[in-house]
Write a protein that binds this DNA or RNA. Structure first.
Lengths: 196, 196
DNA sequence: GTCTATACACCGATAGAC
DNA sequence: GTCTATCGGTGTATAGAC
């Protein structure tokens, strides 16, 4: 029924080349601006300025392209998180990234795509766990420096901060604001307690 | 480019009839189990046991069907929230609904669809604001009964609880668990402080 | 109300030339 | 590396009979 016959021994282009990146860039733009329904090989080719056939020279299938897109993007995010956690005010910077990071619309598209692409799903899980680990480490370190300052365990802080950042981001983009100012105030006070 | 010519004076079936509901039920099942890519008029017809043409007798377009699906579902959720807020332990019950409510996969599909369907987007915004209003009211009421118990303003509590519930739900479904037990413990202690 | 039949667009993926 | 050309499939939506 759903068995896809893919010619796996097809001639393929190298990952990491300029045009390979350009295709992922184009795909990201489309996914972000027009949504998953518009993310097709033809439209990517059109945006990059080549013919559709070339997309299948660089990627076996469209699903492969989507996974490559997320993988590249999440690797960038993890690098930013690592860098932030080595800065002078790691918690503040991590929170900034968490809230202002990837476009909320893009995230929701990936989430929905992950529902039907097991490979993408695996990547998403891996990303969540890795980014949480980085955050927990930074929070632990901050708590150690201010003993008795936080009654909340670091893993819970990381989980809650990530959740709230995601929702705030998403709701702001939708145009919903109720409760946001109050939430920012609470978070700001909390960060003040842990970091300078 | 994207102008859709729809015959608006087509003969249409009544909203609210049995088969109308059956089509929305089928659509929800498909969206939940197979994702947006499988949500087509043909597949809904197949699941309901009628011919594809009939879907367009009850809905002008597929987009209309999707909006009707979300509207019916969100109305049910709002009713449940209203009912919960009138119970003996409203905060506990609201939290239960928030966390165990609609399937997380379904929510992520609607979120992604809302990116490209302005009508659905409007419905989503409306739902978020209404459900938050119900929650804020219940939290305010609980705080009044326990003066000095909460340092966090009610709107912030509602915003944060909704965010955390959504992410916990989503991550559990993905299979991610790190930080969850600690988060549940924190929330449980917080609820204990406000409600019995 | 429900059906058959159909128009038309678009998509994924491939073959094979240059 | 990049192209032209194409196959087979599936989608939305409509016309019009029963």
């Amino acid at each position: 029924m759903t068995e896809k016959k893919v010619a796996l021994n097809r001639r393929m282009g190298p990952a990491g080349s300029d045009i390979w990146h350009a295709m992922l860039d184009g795909g990201e733009d489309i996914l972000c601006q027009e949504g998953h329904a518009a993310l097709t090989s033809r439209r990517i080719a059109e945006r990059v300025g080549v013919k559709q056939r070339l997309v299948y020279y660089y990627f076996h299938t469209m699903d492969d392209l989507i996974v490559a897109m997320f993988r590249r993007s999440s690797q960038r995010d993890l690098n930013r998180l690592e860098e932030a956690s080595r800065s002078e005010a790691p918690l503040r910077e991590l929170w900034e990234i968490c809230f202002h990071s990837t476009d909320a619309q893009l995230i929701s598209e990936y989430m929905a795509l992950a529902n039907r692409l097991p490979e993408l799903r695996t990547e998403v899980i891996c990303f969540i766990e890795q980014s949480r680990a980085i955050q927990v480490r930074a929070i632990c370190h901050a708590i150690e420096r201010r003993p008795g300052k936080s009654l909340i365990p670091a893993p819970a802080v990381a989980m809650m901060a990530a959740s709230i950042g995601l929702s705030l981001n998403r709701e702001e983009q939708l145009g919903v604001r109720s409760g946001h100012a109050e939430t920012f105030a609470v978070l700001d006070a909390f960060l003040d307690g842990l970091e300078s």
